Structures are given as C-alpha cells and as structure tokens.
Simulated scan of single mutants.
Amino acid sequence: MKKKLIQYTTKNFEKLFQKKPEYIFLSPGRINIIGEHVDYNDGFVLPAAINKYICFAISENENSECVLVAKDLNEAYSFNIKDQLQPVEKMWVNYIIGVLHQLKEKGLPEKGFTIVFSSTIPMGAGLSSSAALECGMAYAMNKMFHLKLSKEEIARIGQKAEHTFAGVNCGIMDQFASVFGKKNKVIKLDCTTLAYEYHKADFKEYQLVLFDSCVKHTHLTSGYNDRRNEVEQGLAIIKANYPEVTSFRNCTEKMVLSLKNTLSEIIFNRCLFVVQEIERVPLAIKALSNGNINQLGELMTKTHYGLSELYEVSCPEMDFLVTEALGEAEVVGARMMGGGFGGCTINVVKKETTDNVIQKLTKAYKIKYNIDLKAYKIKIAKGTSTYGI
C-alpha cells in the first residue's frame, strides 16, 4: 500500500512536470488508543502514528513560484513565496500556506517549489489528515532548506497553522503523534508540557480495525466547547471543596463521588468521566506492557461507555457499531475515537476472524442505517519521514 502510494504520487509528478521529484516525504495519520477528551483536562493521551499516509513528491524551482497539486482532489494552487501569505477559500491550501507563513517568519529561503501530494488517510474519519498535511509540509521544508527545526517545533508549527489559517482551535496531540510516531510504539503524551514516553505496542494475535461510520453530526464544535465549559465549572467547584486539587490529574474519583449532591447531574457526569479516563491511561500502558490485550480491550470498552453515557459525545451510529462489534466473541475491545458525534470506532479483533467481523458489521450497518461502512485494518507506524528515491 505504501509503495503503491509512492509510485502513484511520483508518476503523477513526472507526468505533470516532465521530471523526477527531488524528494519524497511520507506523513502519517494517527489513532488514539485511550485518553479521550483529557488532553485539555491535564490528563495523558496514548496516540500512535498509523500506516496511512500523505505522500509528498517535491522539487525546488529556480524562481520563487510555488505550485501545489492535490492529486486526490484534482486541484492545484499557485502563488509566489515572496508574496504575503493569507488564508484562501480552499481549505487544503490553508493547511500548507499556514505552515509556510510561519516558516517565512523564521527565515525560510524565498525559493519556489513544486509539490504533488496524494493520500491513503481517509478524509473526515478523525484520523488527522490535516495534521499529516501540516506536519509533512513543515518536515519537507525543514529537510529541503536545512532549517534545523526540532520535531517539537514542527509539531507546534502544524498546530499553529491549524489555529491561524484553518480556524480550528485544536490541541497538539494529532501533530505530535504524526511527527513523533514510532513503529509498534504508542506515545504517552502530556499535552500540557509535551513530556512524552514510548511504550511497546505488540498486539500479537490481534488486529486493530477502524470502522468509519461515514457520519459527522453538526454538534462536534458546539458539543466540544460545551464540554470544555462544563468540566471547567466542575473543576472550580472541586477545587473549592478540595484546595489540594490543582487539576483533574490529582483529583480522584472518590472526591468527585463525594460531591455528587453539590455538582449538577451533568457537571458530575462530565467530571466523573474525566477522572476515570485519566486513571485508565496508565492501566492501558500496563496492559500493553504485559501483553494483556484482553485487559486493554476492556479498558477501551469502558472508555466508550463513559464517552457515550457520562460525557455524551457519541451518537446512535457509533453506539450501534460498538455494540455490534462487542457482540462478536473475537472482538475484545471497541470504542468511539476522537471528538465524537461521528467518525471512527477503534476495535481490537482476533486476526484470523477480522474479515468475517468486517463482513458482519458492514451488513448490519447497511441494514440499520443504509450506509456503506468503511473498514480499515491498521498497523502502528513511524512518524513523518523522508523516503529515498
């Protein structure tokens, strides 16, 4: 799959520009094993890069003209790197020029370049294709023009591009996982300090499968903002009753339970989910380290029910996919992944039964919602990298 993507992107570059690209770069999408909605609550997350990529074929130009070709969209955009860069109508362009805008401020040589890119990361499935595009671009410019940026700087540049040019106030997890990913490793990441550790992720006789619900409900932005406000209100009340609490990280489930009659039902539920999810992350790391995939699956399943019933960011389609998956004996864990209200579920399935489980869920989902389910078998892969031509 990776080689096919590289060949496809390279051939299209050669066809369009009658020359071979000077560089090939790969930038992956990401998953999050566990640690959902705790990145903004001072918790840890457990992301990993996956073997779905954006491939960039690039050459320098002799002048300051830049040409961007999004092969999958059959769209192109040209500009002069010396011009002032501002957001444009085409969103995919903004992810790229948002990166270039920052690099120009850091002294990027005003040299032109030509890029053709293509992707195997499903769009809109919550696998962070935008972070892969931003970080792949920053990584490519860093290599081509010898900018000496650290991996952390590349991740931060990607995040800032999303904030300033795409208008999405995202956290850093997606960009960090895309850049720092390692094969068969998950990253325990503190999104506040960016302290991180690698932990082995050997799923043995199990396969990670993503089921793309192909729905995205409109509550995502409003729901996300509401949850942030609700947990902030809850934390303020917890701190007033327990002065030793500085954040959700040193708040316990016992403390939240003691305030059940003080907090409103909604605020109580939101806070209970957050403290439980923060506690699940180290348990998941321990399960992975011990090769106890069944226990990891149980923790992931608990996360889903917390997201659905306490945090209320799921939706009927996601709940259906999780319930159906868990009805199969070969599935040891399933949950919704990402911001919520649609996107993908992540499932841990016995390898030899994966195709059978995919077939069953595809049929059930079609009958229930008349939607063609998309399934992706994934592996944990290395982060943004150069590919030798």
Rank of each mutant, 00 (worst) to 15 (best):
M1I: 03
K11C: 13
N12D: 15
I24Y: 09
G35P: 15
H37R: 05
N41F: 08
V45K: 03
L46H: 10
I50E: 09
N51M: 09
K52V: 08
K52A: 05
I54W: 05
C55Q: 07
F56Y: 14
V67Y: 06
K71P: 01
K71S: 13
K71E: 15
E75A: 07
I81V: 13
D83R: 07
E89L: 10
M91T: 13
W92R: 12
I96L: 01
I97E: 03
L100K: 01
E105A: 11
L108G: 05
P109M: 02
P109A: 07
K111A: 03
S118Q: 07
A125Y: 09
S128R: 01
S128H: 05
A131V: 03
G136A: 13
Y139D: 06
M144D: 09
F145L: 07
K148T: 08
K151H: 11
E152F: 00
I154E: 04
E162P: 11
G167M: 05
A177T: 11
S178G: 10
G181H: 11
K185C: 14
K188G: 00
T193R: 12
A195Q: 14
Y196M: 15
E205S: 13
E205H: 09
F211E: 07
S213R: 05
G223D: 06
Y224A: 13
N229T: 08
E230S: 12
E230R: 06
L235A: 00
E244C: 03
E244N: 08
S247L: 02
N250Q: 09
L257P: 02
L263K: 02
I266K: 12
F268H: 13
R270P: 08
C271R: 02
V275L: 09
E279S: 15
V281S: 06
A287R: 01
N290T: 05
I293K: 04
N294K: 02
N294R: 05
K302D: 10
L307Q: 06
L321W: 08
V322E: 11
T323L: 00
E328A: 10
A334E: 05
R335T: 00
G342V: 13
I346P: 03
N347L: 04
N347M: 02
V349A: 00
K351T: 07
E352M: 15
N356G: 09
K363D: 11
K366T: 10
D372G: 04
L373Y: 05
L373I: 06
K374D: 10
I378E: 01
T384R: 13
S385F: 04
Y387K: 06
I389G: 02
